[in-house]
Design a protein around this nucleic acid. Structure first.
Lengths: 165, 165
DNA sequence: GGAATTTGATTTCATTTACAACGACTCCCC
DNA sequence: GGGGAGTCGTTGTAAATGAAATCAAATTCC
């Protein structure tokens, strides 16, 4: 892999490498791939699926809409992820007695077991990632991401849901 | 949108909100959406397309492989983005005289013009983003993302290409 | 020098995804 | 209490994506 560093480079001041949105995308995708691979091989779960599982494990019985709100996923993705989790016996879906349109999602016994295995894996991967940064960098990164996210939300206006992966 | 904060929450110590890979994904996707919308409406370009355009604008004549290396895109995506850019007359593709398998991509006159419009838009959007953070936070974010990216590369092993969006 | 392997780029195919339409139901208001 | 508007969740469809197959040309190794 040879580079033609001088040919025409830097003719204008633009440099993709130093372009933050690009960096953000590349790093995020790389991290997501790492997770996706782990969850896929160890539990046969996609990222949307494990997010739904994590949220319901954390908050208990929830409507799909609530799951989407907590997990920053649009309703289509929640619906399909929930459908496959139900099909695999990890989630139970029942009608909402308070609202004929709504559904309620909760973990089955099996789902609880899987959730119990999934959370430690997430924390383990996160710990591996954290080893690449100092503690100060890590907490700063988290804080700045939240701040940037809120800023973009303010610019972009209302929320279409989130999280491509 | 009412919350059931106490029902069952925090039964274990896991909290998606504070989970860095999740934060990274959500913020990255939101930023990408913002860019995608701007490029789509103002230039009719997708993100892969504008990346290819930006890279070739920056470095001059390049092979698709090189474009992929600089832009962190896998070769399929480069190939398709290049094909549509060629079809729209922004790029010219020619055989590589040095290597019968290779191709060379360069900007057409029209492509140069569009590139000249695309870069300022990118910088403008970036500037808007930057307003949400202090200068120190901004540079720190960039640096930490690079560091994290390198760490994950080391863990994950060889590079399959990148950048979903 | 010629078979076997490797590499650059494209194409094919199965999967994933987003967008829009839909059916079912609730809410609001006259 | 009945009609219109809005909401919840699912499904259909068209585009985007990635993995593997393919094709052509170069490189390697007897």
């Amino acid at each position: 892999m040879k580079s033609n560093s001088d040919d025409k480079a830097m003719q204008d001041g633009f440099n993709l490498e130093g372009f933050l949105p690009y960096r953000l995308s590349v790093t995020s995708n790389r991290v997501s791939r790492l997770f996706a691979k782990q969850y896929s091989t160890q539990f046969g779960l996609t990222i949307p699926e494990w997010r739904v599982l994590a949220i319901i494990g954390q908050f208990g019985t929830l409507s799909p809409t609530m799951v989407g709100a907590y997990a920053a996923m649009d309703k289509v993705k929640v619906s399909r992820a929930a459908a496959t989790l139900v099909a695999r016996g990890l989630l139970k879906q029942s009608p909402d007695p308070k609202d004929g349109r709504g559904r309620l999602l909760r973990l089955t016994r099996k789902g609880t077991t899987v959730h119990g295995g999934v959370v430690p894996l997430a924390q383990e991967i996160e710990a591996t990632l954290a080893q690449g940064l100092t503690r100060a960098e890590w907490t700063a990164l988290n804080k700045v991401l939240v701040k940037l996210n809120m800023h973009v939300m303010a610019i972009e206006g209302p929320d279409p849901g989130d999280a491509t992966d």
